[in-house]
């Protein structure tokens, strides 16, 4: 098995120490960091994601794989910066104003990082302006919002309206989720995407970053 395949295989198995060791070997073998990222680390996360979707593995497996991804990423991060390789994408996450529930949002953050994204986690009780300003300041292209309460869901609409007012639509794309949130609601308020769990959030954000149409048919 080639080195990158081994990295993907061990990452899928959640073996952080082995992934780190193999990544070091790959760096020593002068395999470009971008190849290690795409052909090894992200390929392994894709395998786990696929198995999760098929109900063959469950959340802990995904998180263990994400941890292994992190172990590899730490080693190649300086090389990626040196080579000017862009990360998969950058997203701002937060639970909306008035809402302190963060379990789902945290899971999305862990999985996004595991999938190679940079994540700016704003925590809970996040005001609309803070979402937008943090995204602009940090160079993020996606804002992920979470809410557990029906009473706080309307804040998601406020964020999207703010994006529209400031003519940032297209530059900042939005994905929403949380127990009371539905795809219909996402369409109603003009969100770009809706995700019903952590893995689907990664899929949706990946699509949005790649310029996918989202719910509204385009960036």
């Amino acid at each position: 098995m080639e080195l990158l395949e081994q990295i993907a295989d061990q990452l899928e198995k959640g073996q952080a120490a082995t992934v780190a060791q193999l990544t070091t070997e790959a760096i020593s073998a002068e395999i470009p960091a971008a190849e290690i990222l795409n052909g090894g680390l992200i390929a392994g996360m894709d395998l786990v994601g696929e198995k999760f979707r098929k109900h063959e593995v469950f959340l802990p497996h995904v998180l263990l794989a994400a941890k292994a991804m992190h172990a590899g990423m730490e080693l190649i991060k300086p090389l990626l910066m040196r080579d000017g390789v862009r990360r998969v994408g950058k997203a701002v996450l937060g639970t909306v104003r008035g809402d302190q529930h963060d379990i789902g949002k945290n899971l999305v953050g862990i999985m996004l990082e595991g999938a190679g994204f940079e994540v700016l986690d704003l925590g809970t009780d996040v005001a609309p302006e803070r979402f937008v300003e943090a995204a602009l300041a940090g160079g993020a292209t996606v804002i992920g919002m979470s809410a557990l309460l029906t009473t706080t869901m309307p804040v998601m609409r406020e964020v999207i309206e703010l994006i529209n007012e400031r003519e940032l639509r297209g530059r900042l794309r939005t994905v929403i989720g949380g127990a009371p949130v539905t795809e219909d609601y996402a369409r109603e308020i003009g969100a770009d995407a809706y995700a019903f769990d952590g893995v689907s959030a990664v899929d949706r954000i990946r699509d949005l970053v790649a310029g996918g149409p989202g719910l509204l048919g385009g960036p």
Binding site: T182, E183, Y194, F196, D197, S200
Partner: peptide, 8 residues
């Protein structure tokens, strides 16, 4: 599964 996943 949650309702959305079930629907999907």
């Amino acid at each position: 599964a949650n309702q959305s996943r079930w629907l999907e």
